[in-house]
Design a protein around this nucleic acid. Structure first.
Lengths: 244, 244
DNA sequence: GCAAAAGTGTTGCTTATACACCCATGT
DNA sequence: ACATGGGTGTATAAGCAACACTTTTGC
């Protein structure tokens, strides 16, 4: 049998087929704290509980395409920095049937949420707190408006914890922080993002030098307005170019 | 309708269901070079081509369980350090039907391959070469016995490239290197692993100090035998304990 | 004694931290 | 003028690479 004939006669049902979803961890830094976008479930299972926005992956779309579709349809965002996080595949993670979830995490500047929150009333922003002072893993706490820590639907609490860990881990050696800021920003705003995610105070001059030496930044020559003190210079993120 | 009734009536076919596989990147360092275990395909598609060992995920097993099953059945290994790498979900990555693949990468000491290679004649070890001298991504070259670079089946070339990049990235800040060495090893052997993966020469004394300062290592007091020169001390990996 | 590799010490450079100080703006 | 945060310089400490050197074994 040649390959064409083989493919012609291939039976896709010879092996089990599973339901596959993508779930989105849409993160930002808001008022000095990391935050994640949640949606209130309107159906069973976990009706009324808070969950990550997600959706089933269709036959005709890649995983990345599905993630972008969910970003638009369920989270009300036009676009964002999106990156695959991890795939969750425990047998009983969903009470309905066997469902595998590919988690994507997305980063957005704080101001990008306003429109979506207004348009879609089942969405809310939750603050993430990292109770473990050390570096290594452990669950995080998620709160909406200073509530008690929420129990998220499914294994979404684990997913958010992993996303938070990944964000911390990538902060220093990658450019993820810039995805959390508007196009122009001050070095102080950049440092605030770092401090919120790492939950520490950083030294001002050391931070400035490190950032400028990396040459990921370009001074625009423009300055902040409206402050009642010396206005700070606005910087812009420079995508790495030569990369050698 | 309450939740029990909802679950009772849930139709798992309301959404598309996809075929899901796990593919294993079984890596080691052999004769001073990174290596990966490949299997020769005996069926269409890509009959005769080299591919990663893999298998379909069944309804009744988690992704991690499926990865371990493939490790045993397809790669002939009893156990190994295994970690999820990435999930590949392009629409046409498999000519048969829509198949999503969750890639796991596994690390083993060089001597653990001999038995499997003998017992399963369709397996082979391929050497990985990293042609790009810089840090960032790019495809790697895979060779069996000094052949020309192989074209692997499916998108397995991309998968191996990503695995190699991940291995490099994790080397410095994690303990993956110890998974590539036997239980007792010399500091020279450890340095050889680092040099093979990073494809650079490292400074001896700086390397020794760095490793010992990390306190991941314990001197056993025993020494190498059989060398015609000063025998080196044997060390053992100490799993991080307090972790604080 | 010689070859070969283990193992140590010293020096200098690069990078991070602490802290003091000056600068520019609105009130 | 002064309060406030932006921005810069310097001094000290920590970490790392280069290199020379000493030690221990088999032959």
């Amino acid at each position: 049998m040649d390959e064409a004939a083989f493919l012609e006669s291939y039976d896709a049902d010879a092996f089990d087929r599973l339901s596959v979803t993508v779930d989105l961890i849409l993160m930002s830094v808001i008022d000095g704290a990391p935050a994640v976008l949640l949606t209130r479930r309107s159906q069973h299972p976990f009706e009324g509980a808070w969950a990550l926005p997600g959706g089933f992956v269709g036959m005709g779309e890649s995983l990345d395409e599905a993630a972008h579709r969910v970003l638009v349809e369920k989270a009300g965002m036009a676009d964002a920095y999106v990156e695959q996080l991890y795939t969750f595949g425990a047998i009983d993670r969903d009470p309905r049937t066997r469902i595998i979830s590919v988690a994507y995490f997305a980063l957005l500047p704080a101001d990008r949420f306003a429109a979506a929150l207004k348009a879609m009333p089942d969405l809310a922003l939750a603050e993430i707190a990292v109770p473990w002072k050390g570096e290594t893993g452990g669950p995080v706490e998620v709160r909406i408006d200073d509530s008690d820590p929420l129990d998220l639907a499914f294994d979404h609490g684990d997913i958010v914890s992993l996303a938070m860990r990944r964000l911390r881990g990538k902060l220093d050696y990658s450019t993820v922080a810039f995805a959390l800021l508007p196009e122009r920003f001050t070095l102080r705003a950049l440092q605030d993002v770092y401090e919120a995610i790492l939950d520490t105070k950083l030294n001002k001059s050391a931070f400035r030098r490190r950032m400028i030496d990396r040459s990921w930044l370009e001074a625009t020559g423009e300055r902040e307005t409206g402050a009642s003190f010396r206005p700070a210079e606005l910087y812009r993120y420079l995508a790495p170019q030569g990369d050698k």
